[in-house]
Simulated assay, not measured.
Amino acid sequence: MPAIEVLPRTATTALVTVVLPCFNEESVLRETHSRLTRALRPGRRVAYEILYVDDGSTDGTWSLIEEFASTSESVRALRLSRNFGHQAGCLAGLKEAAGDATVVIDADLQDPPELIPEMVARWWDGWSVVSARRTGRLGEGVLKRASAFAYYRVLNGISDHPVALDTGDFRLLDRSVVDLLADMGDHELFLRGAISWAGLPETVVEYQRDPRASGESKYTVRKMLELSRRGVISGSALPVRATTAVGLASMASAAGLGLVRRDPEAARTACALGVLAVAIGVLGEYVNATLRHVQGRPPFVVRERIHPRQPAAAPRAVLAGAAR
């Protein structure tokens, strides 16, 4: 893996790629594109390109993306062969991004495109990572807000490195960070964890997350659990180590209970089997993650490209510029 060199922003004009992973967003995508193009308003120092990543949509999402791209060469797109998942869609966009910096933002308008110019201004000041921190989550139930609050703090507590609290994948990443993530070879990328692991200079801008403008969340309970599992497995060895402590404590408790009931052997055996089952399950998760890595399969397959990435020396298409 190449070493990272963080360079100061000295160029008179820089390109920022805005990556939007999409999965069945037909009902909201036209409004998203309209707000995005208005937010990326003209300026002198920064030009933008928009990169849509269709993660195997089955509705009219790709047709809309084709329509947007037909009106501007600065609107580019990837179409994946099937639904590989949100993190794979983000990674596909990062690998394809041509910008000096890249912003990842969801297409459902819960994250405001209008915040991007402020993030770019922070990047221009020298920050390698600009994360958007949620101060509120409108339109989400108490259980969702509570579980998200708890998850980030538990993850930060058990992780081998600090993890930014209350931040999702809505971030601006310097070219050096994008190249690092693209070259990592992590087939089960947990984007926010990998960014925190890098430990590069990071600042935050705060915002209140809006309800979805239209449609339903594509993050089902199963997908949220999978993302949570990936975050824990990729960032901490604590679950494996915890089984030893749990096993010892359980054995001690079972031994005491067995002595009271005058059947210590049965109690110890039952407890040991339970602890063994938990330990095997936890270890199995790490073994499965290792298997996925050594299989060497790509994390996504690109079916189609619109306005594919050009060599670095080629002229850049300019959609709009930052206000700063």
Rank of each mutant, 00 (worst) to 15 (best):
A3I: 12
V6R: 10
L7E: 15
T10E: 14
A14D: 15
V18P: 01
V18Q: 00
F23S: 02
E26V: 10
E26F: 08
V28S: 09
R35Y: 09
R41K: 08
P42N: 03
G43N: 09
G43T: 01
V46L: 02
V53T: 05
G56W: 10
T61G: 04
E66C: 11
S74P: 01
R76N: 00
L78W: 03
L80N: 00
G85K: 04
L91C: 04
A98K: 14
D100E: 10
D111Y: 12
L115V: 08
E118Y: 00
M119C: 02
D125L: 13
D125G: 12
L138N: 13
L143Y: 12
K144N: 08
A148D: 11
Y151H: 06
R153N: 04
I158P: 03
L165Y: 08
D166K: 01
D169M: 11
L173M: 11
R175Q: 12
D183V: 01
M184K: 09
E188K: 10
E188Y: 10
L191A: 10
L191H: 04
G199M: 03
P201C: 05
V205H: 02
Y207I: 04
A213Y: 07
S217Q: 07
K218P: 06
R222T: 15
S228Y: 09
I233T: 13
V240M: 10
L248H: 04
A252L: 13
G258W: 00
V260T: 12
V260K: 13
T269I: 02
C271H: 09
L276G: 10
I280H: 08
L283S: 13
V287D: 05
N288G: 06
H293I: 03
Q295R: 15
G296H: 04
P298S: 08
I306C: 00
H307Y: 07
Q310E: 14
A312H: 09
A313Y: 06
A314W: 02
R316I: 05
V318G: 05
G321P: 00
A323V: 15
R324Y: 07
